[in-house]
Design a protein around this nucleic acid. Sequence first.
DNA 1: GGGCGTTGCGTTTTT
DNA 2: CGCAACGCCC
Length: 821
Amino acid sequence: MKSPILSMAKQRFPNLLELHRTTDLTRWINQMSLSQKAIAASRSTEYLNDLNDEQRSAVENLDNPLLVLAGAGTGKTRVLTTRIAHILNMGRASSWQILAVTFTNKAAKEMKHRIAKLVGESAIEGMPWLGTFHSVGVKILRRHAELVGLQSSFTILDSDDQLRLLKQLLKVEQIDDKRWPARQLAGMIDSWKNRGLLPDKVPSVEGEGFANGKGVELYRAYQARMKDLNAVDFGDLLLEVLKLFQRHPDILKEYQKKFRYILVDEYQDTNVAQYLWLRLLAQGSENVCCVGDDDQSIYGWRGAEVENILRFEKDFKGAKIVRLEQNYRSTDHILKSASLLISHNAERLGKTLHTNIGLGDKVILQSVWDDEEEARTVADDIEQYQRDGISLNEMAVLVRASFQMRSFEDRFLTMGIPYRVVGGPRFYERAEIKDAIAYFAAMLNPSNDIKFERIINVPKRGLGDATVKVIHDYARAEKIPLMIAARQLVETEEIRPKPRATIRALLGQFEGWRGKLEELGHTQLAEIILDESGYTAMWQKDKSVQAQSRLDNLKELVRFMGEFENFTGFMEHVSLVMDAEVETNEPQVSLMTLHSSKGLEFDCVFLPGWEDGLFPHQRALDEGDLVGLEEERRLAYVGITRAKKHLKILFAQNRRVHGKWQSSLPSRFIDELPEANVDIQLGNSSGGGGYGKNSYGGYNAKGRQAEVFAGAYSGQKSAGGSPYDNYDAKNSASYYQQGGGKGWAKKGQSRQIEGKVTKVEIVESSFAVGERVFHQKFGYGTVEKAEGKTLLINFEKSESKKVIDRFVEKVDEPEAQGDLF
DNA sequence: GGGCGTTGCGTTTTT
DNA sequence: CGCAACGCCC
């Protein structure tokens, strides 16, 4: 039960502590420790009973550096959150004395949520230091900005802004950005920052490759320019804090003292800068607990160093290692497959995962003819699982590269299987959202040049390069923000009358909005800004397919703003948080890359595209050494361990690479799977036509399929009748192809049962021939044929396609858009 | 400033 | 092959 005294104290403390410095702080802590200890003694540690021995030791081991090697599905987050709860509960530290860092906002949110469940909401409110590396970085940096040459109101540049800035620099330096693309420079700078290198520290050879040795010089110029703009990029959020700590030991000490416990999630993903950052802070207490899994390190290419985790014992004196090897996620066949595969890696700390969930189904391996058959097979399996009663939410297709998604999307759309692409273009990365945000940022802060420049001519208002250049040059010469420069210039004849009037009007609008900041609610003001600026109108006029969804996104943005108290709160969130989840009630299959699947789990997982050159990717193979290949293998390991019950791996014999068909070989990873835990499945194609051609090969010999199959192909499939007819030829081709391969021997051959085709109720279509419709993927079109749920649509932007009616909206009726998406 | 043609490229992605 | 980014021309 919660003690009223404790929660009262907790509610009061944070503010006090944030205001007072060390002496007061220490006194407070000492006082608190006693009282908290007393309370703790009376509190139950019931939550410990839910843990296994290893987890428990990871939670209770509070007095030395600790590395928790947490295999996939072993309860990593549980350990992390319970440990925090335990620290609080035992009175070891108060919530604001715990630093807990994650990589993604999602992970941070999840942790908060779970801690709250353990110790109650009120305890979490006072956890200001639970967040991503970057959000913690901003927090620290804002407090001490002046010490690293910034004002605490600094703005955070996203990669778009960064690129625009670099392009400007290249122009100033008169470097041909064709030959030396800004992208490449950005990449170099990012990697230097990942490694914690300020311009002075960059090994001189490294900059030589760019623009005749100007690489480092440009890096320096870029940093200087950002200081002028009072801006930082993402890398700086770590690097500048590092600089701050190194140059101001007193401040470092303050934080070392403050953070009595440090916890790090996904330690295998830390880069050098993050590592140095942590090590500096951990020198205070030595009470650092890192949780991670070297076998799941898949971000080496963006600076993550597996070595950090491999070196842990050497880095932190007296460190202990706890291995979590009890897996609570997958069945035995799946786990054995993952384990044998990953055992082919040399550089690893080594773990042996075990499960007591049971054997379960074997991993299914299937060879298909091409990507279309692959998608068809997976889609058929998905429908089968659905009939077995598994929710679409519990199914996922995990691909190596995003181009693989297309054939799956096509297939899902024609079959009417609802799906979601996870990790696609993110909400805040869409142009319309960035534009809107730029308006808001420029309104709130007139010296935010980056944002102002973004929208000065969006929508087009006749302020071209020439005009912008005049303002720009003047602003730089006078060292004043663009908007101020513009304000002064409109009083002169520097700019031709027409654009001059336009700028004056624009500046006037901005001032008007700024003036309303007090009186109006922020969402209301946001709407006004988007309207008056002509931004909304710009998209309303736009005839392109995406225009409507862009407008919807803007609406959603404004709605979402309402969840924040004020404009600034919202903006701070926006600059750091790059995800906004679109909620849907409808179950959907998840489609995503292997990378974005890390941390997730599904009952049924499909891993298509296991071919050499695609997975492992050619780039990794070309590197020659094992480093790249081992990371690919870890990616495979991540993929396999996402599956709880059913796992299917597929490889195609032919794949289109850059438009050309190429025959491909099965991935070398396939031969690294344990034969005893894998079943080979024959193709779906028994070539016989009728329903048989799509017949489901059955999921191994456990016999459960027989019942399930009855009537399996009724419903929508027979309704439309023909969507599959086109595939006959190819189906039989693949059938014969597979005959010679691995595929023959085993059971689970396609049944010839035609399925009791239960009577299909042909629902009268709610669409009429000739009706105009809009489809999310294919755009506008006209109904050519309507049979039940299946429609044949003549699309304006592509050939006629068969689609399912639920993916289509009527164009003329405004009501129709309701709850479709 | 907008439209159109050419060119080059083509893993993985968070903050 | 498909697309995005750039440059050129009107």
